[in-house]
Amino acid sequence: MTYRVRIENADGEVVTIEISADELREKGLTLEELLPPNARIVEVEEVEP
């Protein structure tokens, strides 16, 4: 499974990243732990691999 994640950074700019569930598991991280300081998740969407 892959996630498309929209993130708002500290400057108010919204960027989109895609990350797979396998990648998260391998790194032992959650989506929140990948965020840079002062950023927030705006939207998470599951996409087909």
Score class of each variant (00 low, 15 high):
M1T: 13
M1S: 08
M1K: 14
T2G: 07
T2H: 14
T2P: 01
T2N: 10
Y3K: 01
Y3A: 00
Y3N: 00
Y3C: 03
Y3H: 02
R4D: 00
R4H: 06
R4Q: 03
R4L: 08
R4F: 07
V5G: 00
V5C: 05
V5D: 00
V5K: 00
R6D: 02
I7A: 04
I7K: 00
E8R: 07
N9H: 14
N9K: 15
N9E: 06
N9S: 11
N9R: 14
A10E: 14
A10M: 13
A10P: 11
A10Y: 11
A10W: 13
D11N: 13
D11G: 09
D11A: 10
D11M: 11
D11F: 10
D11H: 09
G12L: 04
G12E: 02
G12K: 05
E13N: 12
E13H: 11
E13Q: 13
E13T: 14
V14T: 10
V14Q: 11
V14L: 13
T16L: 10
T16F: 08
T16D: 07
T16C: 06
T16Y: 07
T16V: 12
I17Q: 02
I17D: 00
I17V: 09
I17A: 02
I17S: 01
E18T: 12
E18L: 15
E18K: 05
E18Q: 08
I19C: 05
I19R: 00
I19G: 00
I19E: 00
I19Y: 06
I19K: 00
I19L: 04
S20V: 04
S20D: 09
S20Y: 07
S20A: 10
S20N: 10
S20F: 08
S20C: 04
S20I: 04
A21K: 09
A21C: 05
A21L: 07
A21H: 08
A21N: 07
D22A: 13
D22G: 08
D22N: 12
E23Y: 14
E23I: 09
E23W: 15
E23A: 08
L24Y: 03
L24C: 03
L24R: 01
R25C: 07
R25Q: 07
R25S: 10
R25E: 10
R25N: 12
R25P: 01
E26Y: 11
E26M: 09
E26C: 06
E26V: 10
K27R: 07
K27D: 03
K27T: 13
K27M: 07
K27P: 02
G28M: 06
G28R: 06
G28V: 03
G28P: 02
L29G: 07
L29W: 07
L29I: 12
L29P: 03
L29Y: 05
L29N: 05
L29S: 06
T30V: 05
T30D: 04
T30I: 05
L31W: 06
L31N: 00
L31D: 00
L31G: 00
E32G: 07
E32R: 08
E32W: 10
E32F: 09
E33T: 06
E33G: 07
E33F: 06
E33I: 05
E33C: 03
E33S: 09
E33L: 05
L34P: 00
L34H: 04
L34E: 01
L34M: 14
L34I: 12
L34Y: 15
L34W: 15
L35W: 02
L35Y: 02
L35H: 01
P36R: 02
P36T: 04
P36E: 09
P36C: 01
P36W: 05
P36G: 13
P36I: 03
P36N: 03
P37Q: 08
P37V: 07
P37A: 11
P37I: 07
P37F: 09
N38Y: 14
N38C: 06
N38H: 11
N38G: 15
N38Q: 06
N38I: 01
N38D: 14
A39T: 15
A39H: 14
A39V: 15
A39W: 15
A39M: 10
R40V: 15
I41E: 01
I41G: 01
I41A: 02
I41Y: 03
I41D: 01
V42G: 01
V42F: 05
V42M: 09
V42H: 03
V42R: 02
V42Q: 05
V42S: 02
V42W: 06
V42E: 04
V42Y: 04
E43A: 12
E43C: 12
E43L: 13
E43W: 15
E43S: 15
E43N: 10
E43K: 10
E43M: 11
E43Y: 12
E43F: 14
E43I: 07
V44D: 01
V44Q: 02
V44L: 07
V44R: 01
V44K: 02
E45V: 13
E45L: 14
E45D: 05
E45W: 13
E45K: 11
E45A: 04
E46I: 15
E46N: 06
E46G: 06
E46Y: 14
E46W: 10
E46K: 11
E46L: 15
E46R: 13
V47N: 04
V47Q: 05
V47R: 05
V47A: 03
V47S: 05
E48P: 14
P49T: 13
P49L: 14
P49N: 13
P49M: 13
P49E: 12
